[in-house]
């Protein structure tokens, strides 16, 4: 009985320390030192929020760079309910999905190799990035759709390529930022 009382009192105190004081302290530091990151790295145009630098969006128009396939529901890139496909490598549904995606990719990008990551679903369904190779194979399509020189697109892609961060991870390109740069070339 005595132990129950101690347990109850210690539980309440530790709940206040780790469940109230700790998150509030971290929030305070975060909102002071890293305000932009702590609130979702949002991209604004005037007063309008057009997305988050860290969250991908669904692009299907030939004039935009396309990102990874997304398995979120009910719509792709649903950032209110993240999800992967969870399809097993031996699941016939994975093969079907890939065949469909390969076909539509080849139809839109004739003669180009098909990068694996552009036809496989990301883990989060929100992957903001693609590899430099996955951007390169899309350049001819976009050049045609926008009436631009391939070389100027190549330069733009290079400019948006992030190298490995401190030698970690993989080289990558943020699809949303790249597409915003396509739409607003002056900025």
């Amino acid at each position: 009985m005595k132990d129950l009382l101690i347990a109850l009192r210690v539980f309440v105190v530790l709940t206040i320390v780790t469940g109230v004081a700790y998150p509030l302290l971290v929030t305070g530091i975060a909102q002071t030192a890293f305000r932009d990151q702590a609130n979702g790295s949002l991209i604004k145009q005037g007063d309008k929020i057009v997305g988050s630098r860290l969250i991908g969006q669904d692009f299907q128009d030939p004039k935009y760079f396309w990102g990874r396939p997304s398995a979120t529901s009910p719509t792709p890139y649903n950032a209110a309910a993240s999800s992967g496909s969870n399809l097993a490598p031996t699941n016939p549904a994975l093969k079907e999905a890939l065949e469909t995606r390969v076909k539509s990719f080849q139809a839109a990008n004739p003669g180009q190799p098909v990068p694996t990551e552009l036809v496989t679903a990301s883990a989060s369904g929100l992957d903001p990035d693609i590899s430099p190779q996955a951007a390169a194979v899309q350049i001819p399509r976009i050049a045609k759709a926008r009436g631009l020189e391939e070389s100027s697109l190549k330069a733009l892609v290079e400019q948006h390529t992030q190298a490995r961060q401190l030698g970690l991870g993989e080289p990558r390109i943020n699809v949303l930022e790249l597409n915003l740069a396509l739409d607003h070339p002056q900025e």
Partner: peptide, 17 residues
């Protein structure tokens, strides 16, 4: 299917590899 690599990208994020 003729993809560039057989590496298992299904369910993985580009930035981690």
């Amino acid at each position: 299917l003729g993809l560039t690599t057989a590496a298992n990208w299904e369910g993985k994020e580009t930035r981690f590899g």
